[in-house]
Simulated assay, not measured.
Amino acid sequence: MFKQLAQPDRPLVGIVLSGRVVSAPEGEMLAAVLLREGFGPFRTTPAGGRERAAYCMMGVCFDCLVTIDGRPNRQACQERVRAGICVEPQQGAALLPAIGSKA
């Protein structure tokens, strides 16, 4: 459904999408890679478990939240591809540290 129009003049690096290793141009926006690779859903909603994927592609809607390298609530449209990152879908609301705690 999604395809890259031109090959960027950047090195390809390996990233892990739900346990599957794929190549992507270093520095490309992560959400674009996830859409092109058929990754999805990006997350499920806390109420009702509805599936979501990238929508606005500019950091406004938060539908593209994923877990990157074990850190939840990362907006895929605001993250750039770097070698070795591991991306997993986010299931519901992520647990956040309590205010004042050192996490």
Rank of each mutant, 00 (worst) to 15 (best):
L5Y: 10
I15E: 00
V66E: 01
G48F: 02
V16D: 10
E51G: 12
G59C: 04
C56N: 09
V33W: 00
P72S: 09
R10C: 08
I68C: 09
Q4T: 14
T45L: 06
L30Q: 00
V13A: 05
A32S: 15
V21P: 02
V21K: 15
E28R: 13
T44K: 09
R50V: 11
A47H: 12
C61S: 04
S18T: 07
L35E: 06
E26A: 08
R10T: 13
P46Q: 07
R52T: 02
G48K: 07
V66H: 00
A54E: 09
Q7F: 09
G59R: 00
A54V: 12
M29K: 14
L12Q: 11
I68A: 07
C61H: 02
S18N: 11
A54M: 10
V66R: 06
M58P: 03
A32C: 14
T67V: 15
F39S: 01
L34T: 02
A6R: 13
S23K: 12
L35K: 04
V16G: 02
G59L: 01
G59A: 01
G19P: 03
A53N: 14
R43W: 00
L35F: 04
I15P: 00
A53R: 15
L65F: 07
G48M: 06
S23M: 10
D9V: 10
A6I: 12
L35M: 14
D63S: 06
G19Y: 09
E28S: 15
E28D: 14
I68T: 07
M29A: 13
G70H: 06
T67I: 12
